[in-house]
Design a protein around this nucleic acid. Sequence first.
DNA 1: AACTCGGGGCA
DNA 2: TGCCCAGAGTT
Length: 221
Amino acid sequence: MQTKPKPKRVPTRKILDTLAVMYPDAHCELDYRNPFELLIATILSAQSTDRQVNKVTKDLFAKHPTPESFLQLTEDELAEYIRGLGLFRNKSKNILKTCRILVEEYNGEVPKKRELLEKLPGVGRKTANVVLSNAFGIPALAVDTHVQRVSNRLALADSENPLETERQLMKKVPRAEWSDTHHRLIWHGRRICIARKPKCSLCDLLPYCWYGKNETNTKVK
DNA sequence: AACTCGGGGCA
DNA sequence: TGCCCAGAGTT
């Protein structure tokens, strides 16, 4: 790794506006109808694709729409539903523990506080933020691998630590734009600013991008 | 900080 | 065939 010649001034406003033009309708691509389903779908999405998650949750949520209903399932039975995903045994175990807590401590509801969400098995900082923001409209900026990578490349963040990246983004991005920005960074990370060979020649952010300017060899069709 | 969980999709 | 996927928990 080279020492980073950080730009003197990051044109945050231009970056956010350009992202808005590029991805005007960016949104969560997990299928869910209520906070509980979003919580489960987000736990399931760890190291898996949202398409695979949507595939397995369709049948699962149809037959088990509530945490009470999930508790009728054994660990193996739930694992069978989500077998198409990676990490399915861990997820099955964690989700059943989480459902038990929801039923026994929160009257079957998903709590709306970060501290409580993060205590649920399988729920970390990222998942908690997704639920707060998408399900409850509580401002939060979830940092996953896409947000982390794209933020680093655009010099919106200079840390590899997701929590630190979250802090830096929250300082630079107006609170009202946290949710949209989160989704747009993800869409950008999946479509253009991909990990391996970013398609810099297709990127409207190139004029504002430290990485794109310095990695000319990565420009692929 | 480094492991581990992990099957499926895609180049 | 190898690499990655809207991470979290444990050591």
